[in-house]
Design a binder for these strands. Structure first.
Lengths: 87, 87
DNA sequence: TCAAATTACGGTCGACGTAAGGATC
DNA sequence: GATCCTTACGTCGACCGTAATTTGA
């Protein structure tokens, strides 16, 4: 598991679409699909249900979302702390 | 920034030595050195002071440590949540 | 049938190891 | 001079993009 995967996951969860997430992340939709799928395989559970017109969080996905946000937020705090220290 | 870098950082901080951290992480000491250095460059600040007989956290390093622990802990919670869901 | 996701595949860049080179006590 | 960290360098695998295929309303 890596932070980038979690960032991709959160963007997908927020937008409800791999295509929109890919745009927001400045990458391609197949790539987002690969990253999410790798995360699901690593965790051994589906995070989204594919609906044919987008994606919807599964229960597992919703449970994980909070922790993913925390992890990403703490990474941001690290960057902020380092930036403040540099000033 | 990636979780693996933060895990390396925490192990180094805890052991006070790149060599010991490398053993604990099942990798080589030059690799740990590279990872830490890349993190320091990305953050634009030194996290450790090199003493010739090990390493010591700088003030910036100490400030960041707490957030790194939080990020890694939340990643662990994600794994736990997924594992419980699988049961 | 059409939009959205998946699979296949290839190039390139980074992760990681080995070997050699400083630095500090 | 022994021990620790750093630099240099090579290889192999992963990341990410393009193209083709599949899926579901």
């Amino acid at each position: 598991m890596e932070l980038r995967q979690l960032e991709y996951f959160l963007e997908c969860a927020q937008r409800g679409s791999l295509t929109r997430a890919a745009e927001a992340l400045y990458t391609t939709q197949p790539h987002v699909s690969q990253v999410i799928r790798a995360l699901e395989q690593e965790l051994g559970t589906a995070l989204f249900r594919r609906t044919g017109s987008g994606i919807v969080l599964t229960e597992d996905g919703e449970r994980i979302r909070f922790y993913a946000e925390n992890a990403v937020k703490n990474a941001a705090l690290i960057r902020d702390t380092a930036a403040d220290a540099g000033v």
